[in-house]
């Protein structure tokens, strides 16, 4: 399925949360990267159809999603940032409830729930109540409900919030395994979530998509902007004041500082290969 946004704008109280956004996405993993408040969740809700755009159209396979909404929802999987659930339902009951609201048949939903519980390592939790699950397990249930109808468009809003590193890696593997089957939009402000799995990245700032390209091409933009400087305490304090520091390592008598800057920060500064963290800090240093 092909998803296309044409000049989509959405305002709240005169403030444009999404401002004239246009892009076209096909199958694969697409990272939506932006600071908190940059408009990612509003954009996701516009794509889901929960919000209606003030201007512009969201199209799926060339058709306005709002004109054929029931058909569109059958092809959609959505995991919101704040994932609500009924605490007294068991995992199995909750997934069955979600299958019913997605209009899935009994036979199909039973088969699919069994499959997803196995795939997401939730089989042992199937009879547990939702209120007894840990944050990571709840996220997995959230992903399972989004995948119930084998969606062609999968929208995941901050899916790794609250996950430990091991769960994060497992989540990345899962998303990578789904990449060939559907169009996945993964909204996050955590760079490492998308660095290794996204086919392309959309960078959102102040409601606008400021960059849209593959990770490699985006990093190409950053060539010559990432520096490493060895500094004593005095110079370090000056660097801290004048430049955007990505990280710092302190050893016995000096500091090793990673800086993102258009100009060489000091004479002894060495150029480094950039990563997405550098790109994020370059664009969101004020956020």
């Amino acid at each position: 399925m092909e998803l296309k946004l044409v000049k989509v704008t959405k305002s709240f109280n005169q403030k444009k949360a999404v401002n004239n956004v246009s892009f076209q996405l096909g199958k694969g993993v697409h990272g939506l990267l932006g600071a908190n408040g940059s408009g990612k969740t509003t954009l996701m809700r516009l794509i889901v159809g929960i919000l209606q755009a003030d201007q512009g159209i969201v199209k799926a396979d060339g058709k306005n999603i709002l004109k054929n909404y029931d058909t569109y929802t059958g092809k959609l999987g959505y995991m919101p940032q704040h994932f609500g659930y009924y605490p007294n339902y068991t995992v199995e009951d909750f997934l069955e409830y979600m299958a019913v609201v997605k209009d899935l048949s009994l036979k199909y939903s039973k088969k699919r729930i069994d499959f997803l519980l196995k795939k997401l390592n939730l089989e042992d939790q199937r009879k547990k109540k939702m209120k007894q699950l840990s944050g990571g397990m709840l996220r997995r249930v959230g992903i399972a409900q989004a995948l119930l109808n084998e969606p062609e468009i999968l929208l995941l809003d901050e899916p790794t919030a609250g996950l430990d590193p091991k769960e994060r890696i497992a989540f990345r593997h899962l998303i990578a395994s789904l990449a060939g089957q559907c169009c996945i939009i993964l909204s996050t402000h955590i760079v490492s979530d998308i660095e290794s799995i996204a086919d392309d990245v959309l960078v959102m700032k102040d409601g606008k998509i400021i960059l849209h390209d593959t990770c490699e091409a985006l990093l190409e933009h950053m060539q010559g902007k990432v520096w490493e400087v060895q500094a004593d305490q005095g110079i370090y304090k000056q660097l801290l004041r004048d430049f955007t520091i990505i990280n710092m390592h302190k050893s016995a008598d000096h500091y090793l500082v990673r800086i993102v800057s258009d100009v060489q920060p000091s004479e002894n500064a060495k150029l480094l290969p950039p990563d997405l963290d550098d790109l994020y800090m370059y664009y969101f240093k004020d956020a």
Binding site: T73, P80, D103, G142
Partner: peptide
């Protein structure tokens, strides 16, 4: 009222039975 109480509105908003 409980759909509001448990924040379920968002997760079912994109489903057939909204």
């Amino acid at each position: 009222y409980r759909i509001k109480e448990y924040d379920m509105q968002e997760v079912v908003a994109g489903c057939y039975i909204n």
